[in-house]
Nucleic acid binder design. Structure first.
Lengths: 130, 130
DNA sequence: ATTTTATCGCAACATTGTTGCAAATGATAA
DNA sequence: TTATCATTTGCAACAATGTTGCGATAAAAT
């Protein structure tokens, strides 16, 4: 049985998530960590965190991948069925915890995960008259 | 005013889309074209096709970006509000033209585009008892 | 046929993600 | 506390993907 360890690098990554309101890319995490650990280590930590359902992965329309901490891991069945918002101006991605899409699927599909990302202008950028 | 031209490379790319039932990545398109044109040219053609609303871009959870031809460009307001399905087994991405999510947004967001991708097993792979 | 300019090919570069392996380190039990 | 051992890390090297600049080519309009 593979156990997971609490290393200093992992703790540092989790602290970065804690401080951030928005989802973060690998590069953004790396910048905030400044040389706490290697680039490769961050990739591996993120993989583990996603696997352990501590962090979820979000892919943006532009092809960038971001990560955000889950703040509902107390639920028994843990599905990330909430939406994300991607601002085309400031490029921040935020979780819209309360936005849950409803939809009707054709038969014969087995849905395991959903990724619902809306893009446009976030409240901040909308107010700035852009 | 920038006009767009019909080149042989662009026509070839569109033919590849025509033949394909599923969404295609840059690499997949390149393989099917075998050396009709340069790798860079394909990137630029795809950019233009997306800009002209002839093709839409889909980004998958694994970070891969795929493209599919729009078959509803007759609509006046052209928003890609349909869902896509990404099979975790065969990795094919298909458009679910009839699946349109309904959702309620918080105020102060201006939504311009949505990306709704469901993943799991497609009918083909589901039947294969995987 | 000539002109204009969008498009192309090439080369070089930047970014992002992956892999193998020896060394380091966290967790567990002695 | 120390010994043990599997997990994690750093490094180096590699692979894949996407971008940019620029001279050459070719599509479309006159």
């Amino acid at each position: 049985m593979k156990t997971t360890r609490n290393t200093t690098a992992k703790t540092a990554v989790l602290e970065v998530f804690e401080k951030s309101r928005t989802a973060l890319s690998h590069t953004e995490i790396q910048k905030q960590l400044n040389d706490v650990c290697d680039r490769v280590t961050i990739y591996r930590i993120l993989d583990r965190l996603v696997n352990d359902d501590i962090v979820h992965k979000i892919s943006n329309l532009d092809g960038t991948v971001k990560y955000a901490k889950c703040n509902h891991s107390n639920q028994r069945v843990h599905i990330h069925n909430h939406a994300h918002f991607s601002c085309e101006n400031c490029h921040e991605i935020t979780c819209l915890e309360n936005v849950k899409p409803s939809y009707i699927m054709p038969h014969n599909y087995k849905v395991k995960e959903i990724n619902f990302t809306l893009s446009g202008l976030c409240p901040n950028c909308l107010n700035s008259n852009i």
